[in-house]
C-alpha cells in the first residue's frame, strides 16, 4: 500500500482520469489528447475538463467526427514521435476504428521488426446502468482482449484509474483503457497529486476471505463488493474479491494463489456470457489450479443478447441476488 502523501485529494474516478492526463501532458511534450468534443467542451463526461485551457489547441485537439480517423491518425502520430491519448466518446462507437486497431495499431511493431512502434492509448467510457440511449452501454472488452498486440485495462476507482492510465500512457505499445461510466462519479478515493503508476497486468484483492474467490472488474467491482459484504453478514463464509484491473494480460499469479486457497470460484462480468473474458479466466484456472477446485466455476454475466434499451438494463446487469446465488452454488456444491 502506498503511504498517504501530504498532497492527497479525494477525487472521483473521472477527476482522477483528468488528473492523470494533466500529469502526463505536463511532463511529456509528446503526449497529445484527441477526440470528439475533448476541447472546449471538456469531453461529454468532462474527462478533459480544463485541459484545453492549460495546454492549448496543439495538444488537446477536437477532431472531426470519425473514429477510424482518430485511431488511424493516432497510429501515424505514435509512429512518428507522439504519444496520443485518443478518446472514443463511447465504447459502443469504437467499431469504425476496429480495422485500424486490428490490422495496424497492434501489429506495426512486428511487421516492421520493431522499427515502428505505436505507443498510444485509446480511452472509452463503457457499460450499462446509467440509462444511456441505445448502443451507448456495450461492454465488449472481449472483442479487444482477443486482438493480439493490445493490452486492455479497466479501472474501478479513482486511485487505480490515475495509476493505470499513467502506466498505459508510458507503455510502449497500444493500450485500450476502458472506463466504466457507472464508476465515474460514484464515490471518491484518495488520489496523490504526484505522479505514480500501477503496473499493468496486476490485479488487486479488494476484499480478503477464505472460502470463495470472486473475480470481477469495472462497474461490477462495486456491485460485487456490496453484495459480498451483505452476504457475509448473514453467513459464516468469507470471500476473496479480486478486481482484475487488466483484462489482457490477466494476472495469472493472483488468480492462481487465490484459487489454491479457496478452491471455489465465481466470475462476475456484465458482458455477454459467450466469448466473455470469463473464458480466458477459466483457462488460466484450468492450467494453473485445476486440481484445487472443489466446485465448478460459477459465472454471473450478461446474456448473449444485445445490451438492452434502458427499461430493461437492470434485468440484464448481474444483480446482487445473482452474485450471492452463484457464491452459494460454489460453496454448497
Amino acid at each position: 500500500m502506498t503511504t498517504v502523501a501530504a498532497d492527497v485529494k479525494k477525487l472521483t474516478m473521472i477527476q482522477a482520469i483528468t488528473d492523470a492526463m494533466r500529469t502526463m501532458l505536463d511532463e511529456d511534450d509528446s503526449v497529445l489528447v484527441l477526440g470528439q468534443d475533448v476541447g472546449i467542451n471538456g469531453g461529454v463526461f468532462r474527462a478533459t475538463e480544463g485541459l484545453l485551457n492549460e495546454f492549448g489547441e496543439d495538444r488537446v485537439i477536437d477532431t472531426p467526427l470519425a473514429e477510424s480517423g482518430i485511431v488511424g491518425t493516432s497510429v501515424g502520430l505514435a509512429v512518428n514521435g507522439f504519444k496520443p491519448i485518443a478518446e472514443m466518446q463511447f465504447f459502443g462507437f469504437i467499431y469504425p476504428a476496429f480495422n485500424q486497431l486490428m490490422t495496424h495499431a497492434t501489429r506495426m511493431r512486428q511487421r516492421s521488426l520493431g522499427r515502428y512502434t505505436v505507443p498510444m492509448v485509446i480511452r472509452a467510457p463503457y457499460g450499462a446502468g446509467v440509462k444511456a440511449p441505445e448502443i451507448h452501454s456495450d461492454s465488449v472488452e472481449a472483442l479487444f482482449t482477443h486482438i493480439p498486440g493490445l493490452k486492455v485495462v479497466t479501472p474501478s476507482n479513482g486511485y487505480d484509474a490515475k495509476g493505470l492510465l499513467i502506466a498505459s500512457i508510458e507503455d510502449p505499445d497500444p493500450v485500450l483503457f476502458i472506463e466504466p461510466m457507472r464508476c465515474y462519479r460514484t464515490g471518491r478515493t484518495e488520489v496523490p497529486a504526484e505522479k505514480y503508476t500501477i503496473e499493468l497486468g496486476k490485479a488487486k484483492t479488494v476484499r480478503e476471505g477464505d472460502d470463495v474467490t470472486v473475480l470481477t472488474w469495472g462497474a461490477m467491482v462495486n456491485d460485487t463488493m456490496k453484495a459480498v459484504e451483505q452476504w457475509e453478514k448473514e453467513h459464516q463464509a468469507t470471500c476473496d474479491v479480486i478486481d482484475l484491473r487488466t483484462l489482457y494480460p490477466l494476472d495469472r499469479d493472483t488468480i492462481k494463489t487465490s484459487v489454491e486457497k479457496t478452491g471455489r470460484v465465481v466470475i462476475v462480468h456484465e458482458a455477454p456470457e459467450t466469448g466473455g473474458v470469463s473464458g480466458d479466466i477459466l483457462s488460466v484456472i484450468n492450467d494453473e489450479a485445476l486440481f484445487y477446485l472443489k466446485a465448478p466455476v460459477q459465472k454471473v454475466t450478461g446474456f448473449d443478447t444485445p445490451v438492452p434499451v434502458y427499461s430493461l438494463e437492470n434485468e440484464y446487469l448481474p444483480s446482487a441476488r445473482k452474485i450471492t446465488w452463484a457464491i452459494e452454488e460454489a460453496l454448497h456444491y
Binding site: T274, F303, D304, T305, P308, L312, E315
Partner: peptide, 19 residues
C-alpha cells in the same frame, strides 16, 4: 423481460434459452 431474449434470432439458441 422476455423482450430481452426474444428476437435476437428467429429461433433462440440454446445459450439464450439457458440464460
Amino acid at each position: 423481460v422476455d423482450q430481452l431474449f426474444d428476437n435476437v434470432f428467429a429461433k433462440p439458441t440454446w445459450t439464450i434459452e439457458k440464460q
